[in-house]
Amino acid sequence: MRAVLIVARRELGAYVATPVAVVFIVIFLAIQGLLTFNLGGFFARNQADLVAFFDFIPWVFLLLIPAITMRLWAEERRLGTIEMLLTLPLTQAQAVLGKFLAAWAFCIAALALTFPFVITVNYLGAPDNGAILAGYLGAVLLAGAFLAIGGAISALTRNQVIAFVGAVAVCFLFAATSYPVVSAFLSSALPWLAVLARRISLVARFQGFVRGVIDPRDLLFFASFIGFWLYLNTLFVKARQTD
């Protein structure tokens, strides 16, 4: 665990040392504010909740999280630093976990900076703060799931553009299946796939959290989903270490 935290700390330091952190957080907050207040009709709804805010989270994450994960391994490979890192006395799994935790902590920090939304709804009315907290928990888990996917895809290539596009595509696969258009099409065309798609849909589970329901099965799902992709990430790093 000590080695994991050392890797995580170095990785977080790299976000802060480059403009990545500032650009990401500013754009995330700007897009999230724009979508919630304008497109989401926050005021027109006339309800003190953050449903409009959370509705857009999966789509904003879908575009921005691969931007964080694309460099995780692709850059190590391109710079050759992977050879230095993985010949230090630490295992591939420790490096994978350290990088993932750093990216996750960074996303959690970005989410925490959306606190003015919470203040706003509390000022305007009396929202169900329990549901809002559950929604944030769901958002943190969704971010973790997308990060785990993105990290694994990044381990497959030395090209950051490929890592980005690949991660968006795979995340989209797990996000889109909860939307009526997609699920209706699947039920009519490929019924057996529709059942599976509903089960693995990240967004459908996230929406449960937004409604204020923390289901242990959903927690277990996210934990095993993240674990599965981190395991794949480790395998990819091992298999393609020297490319």
């Binding site: 170095r10 330091g13 790299a14 040392a17 480059t18 710079l79 050759g80 630093t81 050879e83 230095m84 010949t87 230090l88 006395p89």
Partner: peptide, 18 residues
């Protein structure tokens, strides 16, 4: 094994921003 080893990879790669 790696604890007993000091290794300089080809091209001496290091993290540029550190």
């Amino acid at each position: 094994a790696r604890r007993e080893l000091g290794f300089l990879p080809e091209g001496a790669p290091t993290y540029p921003e550190m």
